[in-house]
């Protein structure tokens, strides 16, 4: 069957997440300090992508705003996994790629707001390690924005920047 005929293509925004069965393409534009967490099932070719803003839902006291699962590293990974497994993926076949977590502004004193990208990267690595999901590729850190496209056909992830080129991870 021709993949192109029924490929679904979805673009997600900040604090959103989405899971697609093969054939599908997921994209998110302008990742800055946020981190893009991409999960891929090597067997079913299902893909999941989250555009996450903060490292942990547990650090936020207000319950009302913790409903948004796509906002935090911990809740977004679990939600992605659950959705993928519902559509037939199995955890042992899932691998991860991380993109983003930049530090967009530099000040003399490294305050909390400036280091949020780095904290997002660390949180994502830790959560994935705890869940036993291997990270097979990363394009993280730096001081520039990134746009990503994630393909179910082979799990490839295209990273685009302004002035820092295009790469595939």
């Amino acid at each position: 069957m021709n993949d192109n005929c029924c490929t679904r293509s979805v673009k997600i925004g900040m604090a959103e997440l989405e899971v697609l069965d093969h054939p599908g393409i997921l994209a998110t534009l302008g990742l800055g300090s946020c981190i893009g967490i991409a999960l891929y099932d090597r067997e079913t070719k299902a893909i999941g992508l989250a555009h996450v803003m903060l490292p942990s839902s547990l650090q936020i006291k207000n319950d009302k705003i913790n409903i948004n699962k796509g906002k935090f590293v911990d809740t977004a990974i679990l939600e992605l996994l659950e959705k993928m497994m519902k559509s037939g993926a199995s955890k042992e076949n899932i691998v991860a790629k991380l993109v983003g977590g930049a530090q967009m502004f530099t000040f003399n004193d490294a305050t909390d707001i400036m280091r949020i990208g780095e904290r997002n990267i660390i949180a994502a690595r830790e959560r994935l390690w705890e869940l036993g999901i291997p990270i097979i590729a990363e394009d993280v850190g730096g001081n520039y924005g990134r746009t990503i496209e994630f393909y179910s056909s082979d799990g490839k992830l295209i990273v685009k920047t302004l002035g820092f080129g295009i790469k595939e991870i």
Binding site: G30, S33, M53, I60, I65, F105, Y144
Partner: peptide, 27 residues
């Protein structure tokens, strides 16, 4: 005020900085 910081880049990437701060208290 502090000495300003500047970034010239994608709108989404720059806007993620204030959005994340807001993210701690609201949606």
């Amino acid at each position: 005020t502090s000495v300003p910081g500047i970034a010239i880049d994608m709108a989404g990437a720059i806007l993620s900085v204030p959005a994340i701060e807001y993210g701690k208290v609201s949606d």
